[in-house]
Design a protein around this nucleic acid. Structure first.
Length: 282
DNA sequence: CTTTGGGCCTGGACGC
DNA sequence: TGCGTCCAGGCCCAAA
């Protein structure tokens, strides 16, 4: 489940392969992913030069020389595989949905078994008003995101802080995993009312969100260097989570009696699993 | 306005 | 072994 760090890792893998290159061939192997591909998707991409590969929240933004922007989302199971000029290409898999070739001879294959991902092509000037991007909150690694800004976004919100942090209008790019990890590091219970996360709590939470994302990006970057041909998901797999997926375990640094507390709790909030330590998160 | 819940999609884990 | 069931979850949308 690619969240911001995994998407950033993919971006870093793609940037040197695509930037400055021309897309000589684009293969679209089915009519839709989560949504239908836009009209004339292949025609509008073929021959274009890539100016930059950027990221906004969990979206990849491939800016083209004619002002169009290719928007990509990995969904749950999406990933990208990069092949250099002389690499041997595998037979196409059932879930390899889009293939890009550059004039430098690189091939980029987008694979997504569950098809929760999508691709769209914004026309020049229409990126900011795109339905998926228009309402996004601040980038958590930007200067716009800090304690006071987070406190303001949470003010008056009656939902649990867990649900509020998953709302991409509050902060853009967090998913179920990093919300759990950031709340653990902050000592804040996922069940706490969002509106009560103010002042010092909000400052601490904003800081821990930054920390955990930066650490995960760093882990993804190191794995990327080790596995030149693939990007995405690796950071996720190699990262050690303190609470996510660890129901019943003692949390790191915990000195309380596991037999008494039962360790890390797993509950369901708005239909999703939440993991936390009831002793250290209040 | 806010909040909640359904639906999309497939592979893997699990139970019988 | 083989089948059925459930779960994972990002995001939009409809409904309350």
């Amino acid at each position: 489940m690619p969240e911001l760090p995994e998407v950033e890792t993919v971006r870093r893998g793609l940037a040197p392969v695509l930037e400055g290159q021309r897309l000589t061939r684009v293969l679209q192997r089915r009519p839709d992913l989560r949504f239908p591909f836009p009209d004339k998707f292949v025609e509008r991409l073929t021959g274009r030069q890539v100016m930059s590969v950027d990221r906004r929240a969990k979206y990849l933004l491939v800016r083209l020389d004619d002002g169009q922007v290719l928007i990509g989302h990995l969904g749950m199971s999406g990933h990208v595989t990069i092949f250099e000029k002389d690499d041997v290409l595998p037979e196409p898999g059932a879930h390899d949905h889009v293939v890009f070739e550059t004039d430098a001879g690189a091939t980029v294959i987008f694979t997504d078994p569950r098809r929760f991902g999508f691709m769209d092509l914004a026309r020049p000037g229409e990126l900011d008003s795109h339905k998926m991007l228009a309402k996004l909150g601040p980038e958590p690694l930007s200067n716009a995101f800090n304690g006071p800004a987070l406190a303001a976004a949470l003010k008056g919100r009656n939902t649990p802080i867990k649900a509020a942090l998953l709302d991409q209008r509050v902060v853009a790019g967090l998913g179920n995993i990093y919300v759990a990890e950031a709340l653990f590091r902050s000592g804040i219970s996922p069940r706490r009312k969002a509106r009560t996360v103010q002042g010092g709590r909000a400052v601490r939470l904003a800081g821990r969100i930054r920390d955990v994302l930066l650490e995960a990006i760093e882990a993804g970057g190191s794995s990327l260097r080790d596995h030149r041909q693939t990007s995405g998901e690796l950071g996720y797999f190699q990262h050690n989570f303190a609470v996510y997926g660890r129901a019943g375990d003692a949390c790191p640094g915990c000195d309380c009696d596991l037999a008494k507390t039962g360790g890390i709790k797993q509950i369901v909030q708005s239909g999703r699993s939440t993991f936390y330590c009831a002793q250290r998160q209040r």
